[in-house]
Amino acid sequence: MFEARLIQGSVLKKMIDAIKDIVTDINLDCSSTGISVQAMDSGHVCLVLIELGSDGFEPYRCDRNITLGLGLKALSVVVRCANNDDSITIKAQEGTDNINFVFESPNGEKTSQFEIKLMDIDSEHLGIPDTEYDSVVKMPSHEFQRICRDMSQLGDSIVVACTKDGIQFSASGDMGSGKINLRQSSLVDKEEDQINIELNDPVHLTFALRYLNYFTKATPLSPTVTLSLKAESPLCVTYPIGDFGSMKFFLAPKIDD
């Protein structure tokens, strides 16, 4: 038996909105420690990794490791039927080919039940190596979203450069070019407004803006985002989910031949 109740059901809605343009089907890998999802886009350019610890759910019960394959279209349709303040309970019995969703309003007056057929998803599971990054930059998530949106008006690619002076985003195209510099903040009122730059080595990488703009659909999940960069390596964009999980996007760089 698998059962997990998320008090803030809106978190699930936001997670699905954040990935539905990148992947069509996902496997929920459920174990006693929590739920994880790994999925790649069809072009094998980016990967989504969701990790949710069991402590984010009340109750959480997973008697045996179970993989639940779901089509995002059906999942998206179902979760849209939940109100933002509803709790969402996910239930699956061993040996059945359905997953159940129960939505409960805060006062308990309204409950809704939905069932989705499980799918057998044959997905390639990648081993993500532990990486020591050249630079790790934490910034407000709306700022990152704005930069990606603005830069995509100029070109298809964005160059991200970290030096001791800060982080620079630049793009160019037929129309012209643009550069945005961010420096480490000194004094800010709210921690979530802070720009924090950890630099081990200067790094300079190019990425496709199309994917970054998909990743920023996760902005409603968290006020902050972390960009982890390493020369000639995939970028890791991390959105924390409360204090019990995270959504990470990995994007392969563009490299000169």
Partner: peptide, 14 residues
């Protein structure tokens, strides 16, 4: 311009 890399060339299949 630079060419888009495949993610699987960086991450091994588990």
């Amino acid at each position: 311009g630079p060419a888009q890399r495949d993610l699987t060339s960086f991450f091994k299949t588990a």
